[in-house]
Every structure is written in structure tokens, then in C-alpha cells.
Amino acid sequence: MRHAGRGATLNDTPNRFGLAARESDGDWLDARDDVDGGPAPVRTTVTIERPRTIITRNSSPDVPFDRSINAYRGCEHGCIYCFARPTHAFHDLSPGLDFETRLFAKPDAARLLRVELSAKSYLPKPIALGTNTDPYQPIEATWRITREIIEIFHETRHPFTITTKSDRVVRDLDLIAPMAAKGLVSVVMSVPTIDPKTARTLEPRAPSPAKRLAAIRALSDAGVQCHVSLAPVVPQITDHEMEQILSAAADAGARRAFFMPVRLPHEVAPLFRAWLDAHHPDRAAKVMATIRSIRGGRDNDPDFHTRMKGQGPWADLLRTRFQIACRKLGLNRERLVLRTDLFRPPEGDQPRLL
């Protein structure tokens, strides 16, 4: 069933932890039909989360960072392909509509970050923002947790990266631009499609592709190293746009780019299949067949070293097209290195003299 402005069509995906399947109820999913006979709009709610720490560590050989911060759980952008959807199952919530509508915010994030950066044993390395859910999703306008985190980075001269698909990042240029001048920050803008019609169903509550390209221009004009992410590339849906996206991003000032074939871990696979049936029934079987060819005959390849790249002729073709386009456009000529030597621990009770 389609829900206006939402990505997932389901909210009862199988739960890996043996918990009861979640169904609509009056508190979260209004079961009444609207005046047109369709489902009533699904409300968004936000619950406060009080973690003990805020920096998450990882040792994955597939990602270029070892620490990250996520200010929110769940994401209202509603991207149907989001690999973070299965994390909602840990809360006995559906990776479907619950992931888009039952959000968690961490208002203590900046305070916790200050404590962790103050530890005598702390060694600075770039911290990634937005690796699980978008730090600039709509609720950031009210909660401003991401901005508070960046204020700590600004104070301590700590390097960080931002990955987002929102032009809201431009609102924090007063903090980001001065840090960019010191080599302390870079921004990755996710642009999987530049077709407005595709974007409305693939990532229904994210800002339009045009707004994201405008944000790349604004960031680049302000001296911020800005990169474009074609993640994910969805075969038979967005793959034909690869060269157009790269060209538009380069014209806007992007300096680097990367791509990733779509991943469908755990509950994302049935959600994605349902989305295909709802929005692209004419090519659903073909899309899934191509994905399986990229993922070693499975809906998803969870293995290190291959899960981000894909395998087989289709994956090779995408890589070749990407490399040729980047070479023609002058992308990826520079290696990104953020400085760590400027870091200074947060101020304690006694302010710094200098």
C-alpha cells in the first residue's frame, strides 16, 4: 500500500529477532482511510534517546573512517534503499514505515562529545557525520543537534566529514567554511538521481536533486571541499543517469566522486521488492535479476571487500563508466586529507589564555 510522502509500502517486515510483527495502531499508524479512499497520512514522532557515549567506533576494511556520530536514529527522508533500516528492528520497530516515522533524537550529543574529546587518551582522527542516518533530515531544523556537534568541532578544531542529501547543510556554512579554510572538513552530497520523478518515489522526503546540486555550488563557492556520492546506483532505475549526475556535480564544483551498487541487507530486500511492485511493476523482475547478478546470485552480498563494490559483468561495466566519466570531468584528481594537528581539547572550567 502506498503512503503519500513515504518510501516504504510495508510496516510488517519479518523480524530477525523473533519479536512479533508490528501492525498499525492508533498511536503510530492511523488505520482510517482519508477522504480519497487511501491510507491516512502517517504521522512522524520523535523520542529522546539518552546514550552514554556518542562516538561510534568501527574496524571495517570497507569504510575510510574508524569513528562516526549519528545524531538521530531513523530518517524521515524515507529512502527505500537505506541500508540503515534494519537497525530499527533492534528496537522492536519495523524497518519499514516505522523507520521513517518513529525517530529518535540524541539531544545530549554535544555534551557527550565534549566529554569524549576531553579524555587524556583521545587521539584525533576525522569523525564522520551522517554515515547511518542523515544529520540534516527535516527534524534537524528544530532539534539542531548536528549544529551543536559542529560547534564543538569548531571550538576544538577537530576534523570531520558530513554525508547528507540535504541542502540544509548550507545553513551551517558560518561554522563549516572557516574550518574548511583550515583543512578540517569536507562534505559529501548524495545524489543518486537527478530525475525529479524518480526522486519523489526513491527518496520521497529528501530535498530535490536540484537543491542538492545548488548546495554543492554554495559549498564549493565558500571554499568547502565538496564531493558527490552516487550511492546507490539502482540497475534499470538510475544507472543510465551516472554520467549526467557526475557532469552536473562537477559543473557545480564537486571535486571528488564515488558510487556504490544498491545494497539490500536483511529487511531492506522485501521492502525494496514491494517498492518495485508498487512503482515499477513492468521491470521489477529485471531489476532484481540484475541486482542478484551484481551480488553473487543473492539479493545482498554481506561480505567485506565485495559488498561495497559488487561483482560480475554489470558491476565491471558500472566501474568502467564511472572511471571514464570521472577522468573526463577531472574528478578524483586530488587525495582528500584532513588535518589533525590543529586539535585542541575542549575548554574546561578555566578558559584558555590564548
Rank of each mutant, 00 (worst) to 15 (best):
K165D: 00
E148A: 11
K182E: 15
I245Y: 02
R6V: 03
G330T: 02
A128H: 09
H279F: 15
L264F: 11
P196S: 00
E243D: 13
G74H: 06
S121Y: 15
R102V: 12
I245M: 07
L342T: 06
V115R: 12
T13H: 13
D12I: 08
V187P: 02
T306K: 08
A71N: 00
P261M: 13
W314S: 13
S94G: 10
V63H: 06
E155F: 10
E155Q: 15
R205F: 11
E76A: 07
R85Q: 05
F104H: 14
H77F: 08
R147W: 12
D174K: 04
E155D: 14
P107I: 01
I324R: 14
T101Y: 06
L10Q: 14
W28D: 14
F65G: 00
P232D: 06
R212C: 05
L318D: 05
P95Q: 04
D172A: 01
A289N: 09
W143M: 04
A89E: 15
L271Q: 11
P345A: 13
I149F: 03
V187H: 09
L338A: 03
P14K: 00
T56V: 08
H305C: 08
I152L: 01
P192C: 01
F258A: 15
E100K: 04
C82V: 05
E241D: 09
P235N: 10
